[in-house]
Design a protein around this nucleic acid. Structure first.
Lengths: 219, 219
DNA sequence: TTTGTTATGACACAACTTTGACACATCAGG
DNA sequence: CCTGATGTGTCAAAGTTGTGTCATAACAAA
Protein backbone atom coordinates (compact mmCIF):
# COMPACT_ATOMS: atom_id res chain seq x y z
CA UNK A 1 0.00 0.00 0.00
CA UNK A 2 1.21 3.50 -0.86
CA UNK A 3 2.19 5.74 2.02
CA UNK A 4 1.64 9.47 1.73
CA UNK A 5 2.84 12.19 4.06
CA UNK A 6 0.77 15.32 4.39
CA UNK A 7 2.60 18.36 5.76
CA UNK A 8 0.02 21.06 6.37
CA UNK A 9 -0.46 23.31 9.35
CA UNK A 10 -4.19 23.74 9.00
CA UNK A 11 -5.34 20.58 10.66
CA UNK A 12 -8.76 20.73 9.10
CA UNK A 13 -7.32 20.70 5.59
CA UNK A 14 -4.79 18.05 6.45
CA UNK A 15 -7.46 15.78 7.81
CA UNK A 16 -9.71 16.39 4.87
CA UNK A 17 -6.97 15.29 2.52
CA UNK A 18 -6.14 12.34 4.71
CA UNK A 19 -9.69 11.09 4.81
CA UNK A 20 -10.12 11.34 1.08
CA UNK A 21 -6.84 9.72 0.19
CA UNK A 22 -7.45 6.94 2.66
CA UNK A 23 -10.78 6.35 1.02
CA UNK A 24 -8.81 5.80 -2.18
CA UNK A 25 -6.74 3.17 -0.49
CA UNK A 26 -3.65 5.13 0.47
CA UNK A 27 -2.12 5.16 3.91
CA UNK A 28 -1.62 8.69 5.22
CA UNK A 29 0.26 10.43 7.97
CA UNK A 30 -0.18 14.08 8.83
CA UNK A 31 2.37 16.53 10.10
CA UNK A 32 1.00 19.84 11.29
CA UNK A 33 4.28 21.71 11.35
CA UNK A 34 7.56 21.72 9.52
CA UNK A 35 9.57 20.17 12.29
CA UNK A 36 7.35 17.15 12.61
CA UNK A 37 7.33 16.95 8.86
CA UNK A 38 11.12 16.92 8.72
CA UNK A 39 11.29 14.14 11.28
CA UNK A 40 8.84 12.04 9.35
CA UNK A 41 10.53 12.72 6.04
CA UNK A 42 13.81 11.52 7.48
CA UNK A 43 12.32 8.11 8.02
CA UNK A 44 12.24 7.85 4.26
CA UNK A 45 9.30 5.52 4.22
CA UNK A 46 6.91 7.59 2.15
CA UNK A 47 6.01 7.16 -1.49
CA UNK A 48 4.78 10.70 -1.89
CA UNK A 49 4.75 13.90 0.10
CA UNK A 50 2.13 16.62 -0.04
CA UNK A 51 3.79 19.78 1.17
CA UNK A 52 2.26 23.07 2.13
CA UNK A 53 4.59 25.97 1.41
CA UNK A 54 3.41 28.32 4.08
CA UNK A 55 4.34 26.63 7.31
CA UNK A 56 5.28 28.15 10.65
CA UNK A 57 8.94 27.86 11.70
CA UNK A 58 10.32 25.75 8.89
CA UNK A 59 8.80 26.55 5.50
CA UNK A 60 8.10 24.26 2.64
CA UNK A 61 11.21 25.19 0.66
CA UNK A 62 13.50 24.23 3.46
CA UNK A 63 11.69 20.95 3.83
CA UNK A 64 12.14 20.33 0.15
CA UNK A 65 15.90 20.38 0.71
CA UNK A 66 15.36 17.54 3.11
CA UNK A 67 13.37 15.56 0.64
CA UNK A 68 15.49 15.96 -2.48
CA UNK A 69 18.31 13.64 -1.54
CA UNK A 70 15.78 10.91 -0.86
CA UNK A 71 14.15 11.09 -4.26
CA UNK A 72 10.65 11.01 -2.89
CA UNK A 73 8.16 12.75 -5.17
CA UNK A 74 6.58 15.91 -3.83
CA UNK A 75 3.41 17.80 -4.64
CA UNK A 76 3.31 21.38 -3.41
CA UNK A 77 0.23 22.96 -1.98
CA UNK A 78 0.25 26.67 -2.71
CA UNK A 79 -2.11 29.49 -2.02
CA UNK A 80 -3.99 30.94 -4.92
CA UNK A 81 -2.16 33.57 -6.88
CA UNK A 82 1.34 33.09 -5.59
CA UNK A 83 2.82 32.37 -8.99
CA UNK A 84 6.37 32.87 -7.81
CA UNK A 85 5.92 30.13 -5.27
CA UNK A 86 4.87 27.66 -7.89
CA UNK A 87 7.83 28.38 -10.09
CA UNK A 88 10.21 28.29 -7.21
CA UNK A 89 8.74 25.03 -6.03
CA UNK A 90 9.04 23.37 -9.40
CA UNK A 91 12.58 24.68 -9.80
CA UNK A 92 13.49 23.23 -6.46
CA UNK A 93 12.37 19.85 -7.58
CA UNK A 94 8.69 19.50 -6.81
CA UNK A 95 6.89 17.19 -9.19
CA UNK A 96 3.66 19.06 -9.31
CA UNK A 97 1.75 21.70 -7.49
CA UNK A 98 -1.85 22.26 -6.70
CA UNK A 99 -3.52 25.51 -5.82
CA UNK A 100 -5.63 25.93 -2.73
CA UNK A 101 -8.54 25.80 -2.54
CA UNK A 102 -8.72 22.69 -4.69
CA UNK A 103 -11.26 20.09 -5.65
CA UNK A 104 -10.53 16.87 -3.87
CA UNK A 105 -10.94 14.99 -7.11
CA UNK A 106 -8.23 17.05 -8.72
CA UNK A 107 -5.89 16.29 -5.86
CA UNK A 108 -6.49 12.58 -6.19
CA UNK A 109 -5.90 12.72 -9.92
CA UNK A 110 -2.58 14.47 -9.46
CA UNK A 111 -1.52 12.12 -6.73
CA UNK A 112 -2.20 9.15 -8.97
CA UNK A 113 -0.48 10.81 -11.89
CA UNK A 114 2.70 11.47 -9.94
CA UNK A 115 2.75 8.00 -8.46
CA UNK A 116 2.27 6.53 -11.91
CA UNK A 117 5.10 8.63 -13.25
CA UNK A 118 7.30 7.17 -10.54
CA UNK A 119 6.14 3.70 -11.33
CA UNK A 120 4.76 3.43 -7.86
CA UNK A 121 1.13 3.34 -8.73
CA UNK A 122 -0.65 0.28 -7.62
CA UNK A 123 -1.09 -1.23 -11.00
CA UNK A 124 -1.76 -4.85 -10.34
CA UNK A 125 -4.62 -6.25 -8.43
CA UNK A 126 -5.38 -9.87 -7.80
CA UNK A 127 -8.11 -11.95 -6.34
CA UNK A 128 -8.43 -15.71 -6.34
CA UNK A 129 -6.91 -16.84 -9.64
CA UNK A 130 -7.71 -13.59 -11.39
CA UNK A 131 -5.07 -10.96 -12.07
CA UNK A 132 -5.72 -7.43 -13.16
CA UNK A 133 -3.30 -5.00 -14.70
CA UNK A 134 -4.81 -1.59 -14.18
CA UNK A 135 -2.45 0.12 -16.58
CA UNK A 136 -3.01 -2.06 -19.60
CA UNK A 137 -6.51 -2.85 -18.43
CA UNK A 138 -6.06 -6.53 -19.01
CA UNK A 139 -7.39 -9.40 -16.99
CA UNK A 140 -6.33 -13.00 -16.78
CA UNK A 141 -7.89 -15.92 -15.01
CA UNK A 142 -5.49 -18.76 -14.27
CA UNK A 143 -3.14 -16.99 -16.69
CA UNK A 144 -5.70 -17.15 -19.48
CA UNK A 145 -6.76 -13.75 -20.83
CA UNK A 146 -10.34 -12.73 -20.17
CA UNK A 147 -12.03 -10.09 -22.28
CA UNK A 148 -13.92 -7.58 -20.18
CA UNK A 149 -15.80 -4.55 -21.33
CA UNK A 150 -15.08 -1.14 -19.85
CA UNK A 151 -17.89 -1.25 -17.35
CA UNK A 152 -17.14 -4.80 -16.38
CA UNK A 153 -13.54 -3.89 -15.79
CA UNK A 154 -14.31 -0.87 -13.66
CA UNK A 155 -16.82 -2.84 -11.69
CA UNK A 156 -14.29 -5.58 -11.09
CA UNK A 157 -11.70 -3.10 -9.87
CA UNK A 158 -14.20 -1.52 -7.53
CA UNK A 159 -15.08 -4.89 -6.09
CA UNK A 160 -11.50 -5.99 -5.62
CA UNK A 161 -10.49 -2.73 -4.01
CA UNK A 162 -13.24 -3.37 -1.51
CA UNK A 163 -13.04 -7.09 -1.04
CA UNK A 164 -14.91 -8.37 1.95
CA UNK A 165 -16.83 -5.16 2.20
CA UNK A 166 -20.58 -5.17 1.80
CA UNK A 167 -21.01 -2.50 -0.85
CA UNK A 168 -24.28 -0.72 -1.20
CA UNK A 169 -25.71 -0.63 -4.69
CA UNK A 170 -25.77 3.15 -4.58
CA UNK A 171 -22.10 3.29 -3.79
CA UNK A 172 -21.05 0.85 -6.48
CA UNK A 173 -23.12 2.62 -9.06
CA UNK A 174 -21.81 6.03 -8.16
CA UNK A 175 -18.22 4.84 -8.24
CA UNK A 176 -18.42 2.95 -11.50
CA UNK A 177 -20.93 5.03 -13.42
CA UNK A 178 -20.00 8.35 -11.86
CA UNK A 179 -23.56 9.45 -11.35
CA UNK A 180 -26.30 9.04 -8.82
CA UNK A 181 -28.07 5.73 -8.68
CA UNK A 182 -31.67 5.65 -9.80
CA UNK A 183 -33.21 2.58 -8.32
CA UNK A 184 -35.55 0.42 -10.26
CA UNK A 185 -33.42 -0.58 -13.18
CA UNK A 186 -31.50 -3.75 -13.77
CA UNK A 187 -28.31 -2.11 -14.99
CA UNK A 188 -26.05 -2.88 -12.07
CA UNK A 189 -27.45 -6.35 -11.63
CA UNK A 190 -26.92 -7.19 -15.26
CA UNK A 191 -23.29 -6.20 -15.10
CA UNK A 192 -22.80 -8.20 -11.95
CA UNK A 193 -24.27 -11.22 -13.68
CA UNK A 194 -22.05 -10.75 -16.70
CA UNK A 195 -18.98 -10.44 -14.52
CA UNK A 196 -19.93 -13.49 -12.53
CA UNK A 197 -20.35 -15.46 -15.69
CA UNK A 198 -17.16 -14.36 -17.40
CA UNK A 199 -15.03 -15.03 -14.34
CA UNK A 200 -16.92 -17.99 -13.00
CA UNK A 201 -17.32 -16.03 -9.79
CA UNK A 202 -20.84 -17.07 -8.91
CA UNK A 203 -19.58 -17.94 -5.44
CA UNK A 204 -17.17 -15.08 -4.90
CA UNK A 205 -19.48 -12.22 -5.74
CA UNK A 206 -22.13 -12.65 -3.11
CA UNK A 207 -25.32 -10.72 -3.14
CA UNK A 208 -26.18 -9.10 0.15
CA UNK A 209 -29.94 -9.03 0.01
CA UNK A 210 -31.37 -5.53 0.21
CA UNK A 211 -27.92 -4.05 0.41
CA UNK A 212 -25.81 -4.80 -2.60
CA UNK A 213 -22.87 -7.08 -3.28
CA UNK A 214 -19.74 -8.30 -1.58
CA UNK A 215 -16.63 -9.89 -3.03
CA UNK A 216 -15.80 -12.61 -0.58
CA UNK A 217 -12.63 -14.49 0.19
CA UNK A 218 -13.98 -17.72 1.55
CA UNK A 219 -16.06 -20.21 -0.32
CA UNK B 1 -9.01 -7.97 15.81
CA UNK B 2 -7.04 -5.13 17.33
CA UNK B 3 -3.84 -6.02 19.13
CA UNK B 4 -2.76 -3.96 22.11
CA UNK B 5 0.53 -4.09 23.96
CA UNK B 6 0.55 -3.22 27.64
CA UNK B 7 3.94 -2.25 29.07
CA UNK B 8 3.52 -1.94 32.82
CA UNK B 9 5.71 -3.27 35.60
CA UNK B 10 2.98 -3.68 38.18
CA UNK B 11 1.60 -7.00 37.10
CA UNK B 12 -1.66 -6.50 38.93
CA UNK B 13 -2.41 -3.34 37.01
CA UNK B 14 -1.25 -4.81 33.74
CA UNK B 15 -3.52 -7.79 34.15
CA UNK B 16 -6.44 -5.66 35.20
CA UNK B 17 -6.11 -3.68 32.01
CA UNK B 18 -5.64 -6.81 29.96
CA UNK B 19 -8.76 -8.45 31.33
CA UNK B 20 -10.89 -5.41 30.72
CA UNK B 21 -9.66 -4.73 27.23
CA UNK B 22 -10.06 -8.36 26.29
CA UNK B 23 -13.62 -8.18 27.51
CA UNK B 24 -14.06 -5.40 24.96
CA UNK B 25 -12.81 -7.64 22.23
CA UNK B 26 -9.19 -6.57 21.97
CA UNK B 27 -6.29 -8.95 21.96
CA UNK B 28 -3.69 -8.01 24.59
CA UNK B 29 -0.10 -8.83 25.39
CA UNK B 30 1.61 -7.71 28.58
CA UNK B 31 5.24 -6.78 29.08
CA UNK B 32 6.29 -6.33 32.68
CA UNK B 33 9.57 -4.57 31.98
CA UNK B 34 11.02 -2.24 29.40
CA UNK B 35 13.28 -4.75 27.77
CA UNK B 36 10.52 -7.24 27.06
CA UNK B 37 8.44 -4.33 25.86
CA UNK B 38 11.09 -3.22 23.43
CA UNK B 39 11.36 -6.70 21.98
CA UNK B 40 7.64 -6.92 21.48
CA UNK B 41 7.42 -3.45 20.00
CA UNK B 42 10.03 -4.36 17.45
CA UNK B 43 7.74 -7.02 16.05
CA UNK B 44 5.60 -4.13 14.91
CA UNK B 45 2.39 -6.09 15.06
CA UNK B 46 0.49 -3.93 17.51
CA UNK B 47 -2.26 -1.44 16.77
CA UNK B 48 -1.82 0.44 20.02
CA UNK B 49 0.60 0.53 22.90
CA UNK B 50 -0.18 1.41 26.50
CA UNK B 51 3.04 2.54 28.06
CA UNK B 52 3.87 3.13 31.69
CA UNK B 53 6.46 5.82 32.12
CA UNK B 54 7.99 4.61 35.33
CA UNK B 55 9.63 1.35 34.38
CA UNK B 56 12.73 -0.31 35.81
CA UNK B 57 15.84 -0.34 33.61
CA UNK B 58 14.48 1.16 30.39
CA UNK B 59 11.94 3.91 31.00
CA UNK B 60 8.93 4.84 28.97
CA UNK B 61 10.55 7.73 27.15
CA UNK B 62 13.27 5.56 25.78
CA UNK B 63 10.72 3.03 24.65
CA UNK B 64 8.84 5.77 22.90
CA UNK B 65 11.88 6.31 20.70
CA UNK B 66 11.50 2.71 19.65
CA UNK B 67 7.89 3.13 18.83
CA UNK B 68 7.94 6.37 16.92
CA UNK B 69 9.47 5.13 13.73
CA UNK B 70 6.78 2.49 13.52
CA UNK B 71 3.93 4.94 13.71
CA UNK B 72 2.05 2.93 16.26
CA UNK B 73 -0.15 5.08 18.49
CA UNK B 74 0.78 5.25 22.14
CA UNK B 75 -1.10 6.09 25.30
CA UNK B 76 1.05 6.94 28.29
CA UNK B 77 0.23 5.83 31.78
CA UNK B 78 1.51 8.39 34.25
CA UNK B 79 1.36 8.71 37.99
CA UNK B 80 -0.91 11.33 39.42
CA UNK B 81 0.52 14.78 39.66
CA UNK B 82 3.54 14.40 37.45
CA UNK B 83 2.52 17.15 35.07
CA UNK B 84 5.95 17.35 33.50
CA UNK B 85 5.72 13.73 32.48
CA UNK B 86 2.51 14.30 30.65
CA UNK B 87 3.82 17.21 28.70
CA UNK B 88 7.03 15.45 27.90
CA UNK B 89 5.13 12.40 26.79
CA UNK B 90 2.86 14.31 24.48
CA UNK B 91 5.79 16.23 23.07
CA UNK B 92 7.62 13.02 22.38
CA UNK B 93 4.73 11.80 20.32
CA UNK B 94 2.32 10.05 22.63
CA UNK B 95 -1.25 10.28 21.40
CA UNK B 96 -2.84 10.56 24.79
CA UNK B 97 -2.10 9.98 28.42
CA UNK B 98 -4.05 8.71 31.34
CA UNK B 99 -3.39 9.29 35.00
CA UNK B 100 -3.13 6.45 37.49
CA UNK B 101 -5.23 5.45 39.29
CA UNK B 102 -7.84 5.50 36.55
CA UNK B 103 -11.36 4.31 35.96
CA UNK B 104 -11.31 1.38 33.61
CA UNK B 105 -14.12 2.95 31.63
CA UNK B 106 -12.04 6.00 31.00
CA UNK B 107 -9.19 3.88 29.75
CA UNK B 108 -11.44 2.06 27.32
CA UNK B 109 -12.89 5.31 26.06
CA UNK B 110 -9.43 6.71 25.37
CA UNK B 111 -8.28 3.54 23.71
CA UNK B 112 -11.25 3.64 21.36
CA UNK B 113 -10.76 7.32 20.70
CA UNK B 114 -7.13 6.88 19.70
CA UNK B 115 -7.85 3.87 17.52
CA UNK B 116 -10.62 5.77 15.84
CA UNK B 117 -8.32 8.67 15.20
CA UNK B 118 -5.96 6.27 13.48
CA UNK B 119 -8.75 4.79 11.43
CA UNK B 120 -8.22 1.53 13.21
CA UNK B 121 -11.45 1.61 15.11
CA UNK B 122 -12.77 -1.82 15.56
CA UNK B 123 -15.20 -2.64 12.90
CA UNK B 124 -15.89 -5.79 14.77
CA UNK B 125 -18.29 -6.32 17.56
CA UNK B 126 -18.48 -9.40 19.68
CA UNK B 127 -20.72 -10.88 22.29
CA UNK B 128 -20.53 -14.34 23.75
CA UNK B 129 -19.34 -16.58 20.92
CA UNK B 130 -20.82 -14.35 18.24
CA UNK B 131 -18.68 -12.04 16.16
CA UNK B 132 -19.95 -9.29 13.93
CA UNK B 133 -18.06 -7.57 11.15
CA UNK B 134 -19.87 -4.35 10.48
CA UNK B 135 -17.97 -3.64 7.28
CA UNK B 136 -18.65 -6.88 5.51
CA UNK B 137 -21.93 -7.28 7.35
CA UNK B 138 -21.12 -10.85 8.27
CA UNK B 139 -21.82 -12.70 11.48
CA UNK B 140 -20.30 -15.84 12.88
CA UNK B 141 -21.18 -17.91 15.89
CA UNK B 142 -18.37 -20.08 17.18
CA UNK B 143 -16.66 -19.25 13.87
CA UNK B 144 -19.54 -20.64 11.86
CA UNK B 145 -21.20 -18.14 9.53
CA UNK B 146 -24.74 -17.16 10.39
CA UNK B 147 -27.00 -15.67 7.74
CA UNK B 148 -28.91 -12.67 9.01
CA UNK B 149 -31.30 -10.45 7.13
CA UNK B 150 -30.85 -6.70 7.06
CA UNK B 151 -33.27 -6.05 9.87
CA UNK B 152 -31.88 -8.83 11.99
CA UNK B 153 -28.39 -7.54 11.49
CA UNK B 154 -29.25 -3.97 12.40
CA UNK B 155 -31.17 -5.16 15.41
CA UNK B 156 -28.25 -7.25 16.57
CA UNK B 157 -25.86 -4.32 16.27
CA UNK B 158 -28.22 -2.12 18.22
CA UNK B 159 -28.44 -4.69 21.00
CA UNK B 160 -24.72 -5.27 21.23
CA UNK B 161 -23.94 -1.59 21.26
CA UNK B 162 -26.23 -1.35 24.24
CA UNK B 163 -25.46 -4.55 26.04
CA UNK B 164 -26.74 -4.73 29.58
CA UNK B 165 -29.00 -1.80 28.91
CA UNK B 166 -32.75 -2.23 29.05
CA UNK B 167 -33.91 -0.82 25.74
CA UNK B 168 -37.41 0.45 25.32
CA UNK B 169 -39.31 -0.99 22.38
CA UNK B 170 -39.87 2.50 21.05
CA UNK B 171 -36.19 3.21 21.05
CA UNK B 172 -35.19 -0.03 19.37
CA UNK B 173 -37.83 0.38 16.75
CA UNK B 174 -36.89 3.92 15.97
CA UNK B 175 -33.22 3.05 15.70
CA UNK B 176 -33.61 0.01 13.52
CA UNK B 177 -36.64 0.92 11.47
CA UNK B 178 -35.95 4.63 11.35
CA UNK B 179 -39.52 5.57 12.04
CA UNK B 180 -41.80 6.04 14.99
CA UNK B 181 -43.07 2.96 16.74
CA UNK B 182 -46.75 2.16 16.45
CA UNK B 183 -47.58 -0.13 19.30
CA UNK B 184 -49.84 -3.08 18.94
CA UNK B 185 -48.07 -5.09 16.31
CA UNK B 186 -45.82 -8.08 16.62
CA UNK B 187 -43.14 -6.80 14.28
CA UNK B 188 -40.38 -6.10 16.74
CA UNK B 189 -41.15 -9.19 18.80
CA UNK B 190 -41.01 -11.38 15.74
CA UNK B 191 -37.60 -10.10 14.83
CA UNK B 192 -36.36 -10.62 18.35
CA UNK B 193 -37.59 -14.21 18.21
CA UNK B 194 -35.90 -14.79 14.90
CA UNK B 195 -32.65 -13.40 16.20
CA UNK B 196 -32.87 -15.49 19.35
CA UNK B 197 -33.47 -18.57 17.29
CA UNK B 198 -30.72 -17.99 14.75
CA UNK B 199 -28.13 -17.25 17.39
CA UNK B 200 -29.39 -19.57 20.08
CA UNK B 201 -29.62 -16.54 22.32
CA UNK B 202 -32.82 -17.38 24.16
CA UNK B 203 -30.99 -16.69 27.40
CA UNK B 204 -28.94 -13.69 26.35
CA UNK B 205 -31.72 -11.57 24.89
CA UNK B 206 -33.91 -11.08 27.94
CA UNK B 207 -37.31 -9.55 27.73
CA UNK B 208 -37.94 -6.76 30.16
CA UNK B 209 -41.64 -6.98 30.77
CA UNK B 210 -43.57 -3.90 29.69
CA UNK B 211 -40.36 -2.20 28.69
CA UNK B 212 -38.53 -3.95 25.93
CA UNK B 213 -35.42 -6.10 25.71
CA UNK B 214 -31.96 -6.31 27.16
CA UNK B 215 -28.88 -8.15 25.95
CA UNK B 216 -27.40 -9.62 29.08
CA UNK B 217 -23.95 -10.87 29.97
CA UNK B 218 -24.74 -13.41 32.64
CA UNK B 219 -26.43 -16.74 32.11
C1' DT C 1 -53.99 -17.44 46.58
C1' DT C 2 -56.98 -16.57 43.08
C1' DT C 3 -58.55 -14.16 39.28
C1' DG C 4 -58.58 -11.01 35.61
C1' DT C 5 -55.82 -8.33 32.49
C1' DT C 6 -52.25 -7.52 29.61
C1' DA C 7 -47.87 -8.59 27.32
C1' DT C 8 -45.02 -11.77 25.05
C1' DG C 9 -43.69 -16.28 22.60
C1' DA C 10 -44.53 -19.26 18.96
C1' DC C 11 -45.93 -19.91 14.61
C1' DA C 12 -47.92 -19.69 10.16
C1' DC C 13 -48.84 -17.18 6.17
C1' DA C 14 -49.62 -13.69 2.85
C1' DA C 15 -47.93 -9.56 0.91
C1' DC C 16 -44.26 -7.51 -0.61
C1' DT C 17 -39.64 -6.64 -2.26
C1' DT C 18 -35.52 -7.89 -4.39
C1' DT C 19 -32.71 -10.41 -7.46
C1' DG C 20 -31.54 -13.67 -11.44
C1' DA C 21 -32.17 -14.75 -16.08
C1' DC C 22 -32.90 -13.34 -20.41
C1' DA C 23 -34.31 -10.95 -24.48
C1' DC C 24 -34.20 -6.94 -26.83
C1' DA C 25 -33.64 -1.98 -27.94
C1' DT C 26 -30.43 1.50 -28.15
C1' DC C 27 -26.07 3.55 -28.54
C1' DA C 28 -21.30 4.53 -29.97
C1' DG C 29 -17.46 3.68 -32.77
C1' DG C 30 -15.40 2.09 -36.64
C1' DC D 1 -24.11 -0.23 -41.96
C1' DC D 2 -22.03 -3.55 -38.68
C1' DT D 3 -20.71 -4.90 -34.30
C1' DG D 4 -20.13 -5.18 -29.71
C1' DA D 5 -21.30 -2.78 -25.47
C1' DT D 6 -24.65 -1.13 -22.53
C1' DG D 7 -29.11 -0.06 -20.51
C1' DT D 8 -33.87 -1.47 -19.59
C1' DG D 9 -38.07 -4.16 -19.27
C1' DT D 10 -40.39 -8.48 -18.11
C1' DC D 11 -41.12 -12.47 -15.70
C1' DA D 12 -40.11 -16.07 -12.50
C1' DA D 13 -37.88 -17.36 -8.43
C1' DA D 14 -36.15 -16.46 -4.03
C1' DG D 15 -36.11 -14.21 0.11
C1' DT D 16 -37.79 -10.86 3.58
C1' DT D 17 -40.95 -8.76 6.51
C1' DG D 18 -45.27 -7.47 8.75
C1' DT D 19 -49.36 -9.11 10.92
C1' DG D 20 -52.84 -12.07 12.93
C1' DT D 21 -54.02 -15.86 16.00
C1' DC D 22 -53.67 -18.37 19.92
C1' DA D 23 -51.42 -20.20 23.91
C1' DT D 24 -48.82 -19.01 27.75
C1' DA D 25 -46.48 -16.18 30.99
C1' DA D 26 -46.18 -12.15 33.96
C1' DC D 27 -48.19 -8.99 36.63
C1' DA D 28 -51.73 -6.53 39.52
C1' DA D 29 -55.67 -6.30 42.25
C1' DA D 30 -58.77 -8.38 45.18
Amino acid sequence: MQKILIVEDEEAIANLIKINLEAEGYQCVCAFDGKTGADLIEEGTFDLILLDIMLPEINGYELLEYVRPMGTPVIFLTAKGSVDDRIKGLKLGADDYIVKPFQIGELIARVEAVLRRYGKAKQKLAFADVEIDVISRTVTKANVPVELTVKEFDLLVELIQNKNVALYRERIYEKVWGEAFMGDTRTLDSHIQRLRKKLGWENYIRTVFRVGYRLEDAT
